[in-house]
Simulated assay, not measured.
Amino acid sequence: MKGRVLIAAGSDSGGGAGIQADIKTVTALGGYAATAITALTAQDTHTVHAIHEIPVDFIAEQFRLTVADIGVDAIKTGMLHKRAVIETVVRCIDDHGKGALVVVDPVMVAKGGARLLDADTTDVVIAELLPRADVLTPNLPEAAVLADMPIEDLDAMKRAAERLLGFGPKAVLLKGGHLKGARLTDLLATADGFEVFEGRRIDTPHTHGTGCTTASAIATGLAQGMPLRAAVERARAYVLEAIRTAPGYGSGHGPLNHAHTVRD
């Protein structure tokens, strides 16, 4: 076991996304997962039915105690649904996360369409959270909101990624799963330029938690000392196989097979 990843995100009672997907991913890739849970959700493979708030002081205490005792190599943020939660996690990163690499998954909308981020918080995400990110991992709808522009092709992805880099993250992995076509195109943008990753698209409804899983897989690689490109490549391969071998649970957007690396 190598690489300590502290995940600040919400819990998914269905187990396909959120904290549950994060813990499974980090563990399946040989890392150590710890958590600062930001919210509890009651959800299934169709939608989020309810959200239970976690007091921000308790979020901060989870973060502080974990880092003080266990330490941290990488921090991954997921569902930070309110301004006060974002501000709390940002303070925790500054106060307790020194030396840790930060992967920000700007979770805004669940797979079933439910909003997971208050509509009036985009400004604080841009001003406070993005400058602390070593890697930002938005999907196209999230990137379109943050960059304030439509994204309909690879050229637009590049323009949006440049705009997002301008907000302060050191790298942006723009996930192209919402584009149409048989090929899946992701774009990694850094100060050194762009790198395009292509792969085959799997026609399946069982893609719940792909964003959480990808970000946690990258965070695990970085926590283990992998260069960014290698961490991204491994994360993409891990997620592809997790989709390909998905168990088919649920009647909506089903979960992935996070355990495909586990062997009897």
Rank of each mutant, 00 (worst) to 15 (best):
K98H: 14
G99A: 07
L101Y: 06
V102H: 02
V102S: 04
V107M: 11
M108N: 12
V109Y: 12
G113P: 01
G113E: 02
G113L: 06
L116P: 02
D118R: 10
A119M: 15
T121E: 08
V124H: 08
A127K: 11
L129C: 01
A133P: 03
D134K: 04
T137W: 00
T137Y: 04
P138D: 00
P141G: 11
L146V: 01
L146Y: 01
A147I: 01
L154W: 00
A156T: 03
A156V: 01
A156S: 14
A156N: 05
E162M: 11
L164Q: 06
L164K: 04
L165V: 01
G166A: 13
G166I: 09
G166R: 08
F167E: 13
F167A: 14
F167I: 01
V172P: 01
L174W: 00
L179A: 12
L179T: 12
K180F: 00
D186G: 06
A189I: 05
A191D: 14
G193S: 11
E195P: 00
F197L: 14
F197Q: 09
E198Q: 14
I202V: 15
D203E: 10
D203R: 04
P205D: 05
T207L: 12
G209V: 01
T210C: 14
C212W: 11
C212M: 14
T213C: 00
T214D: 00
T214A: 01
A215F: 08
A215T: 09
S216V: 11
S216Q: 15
L222R: 06
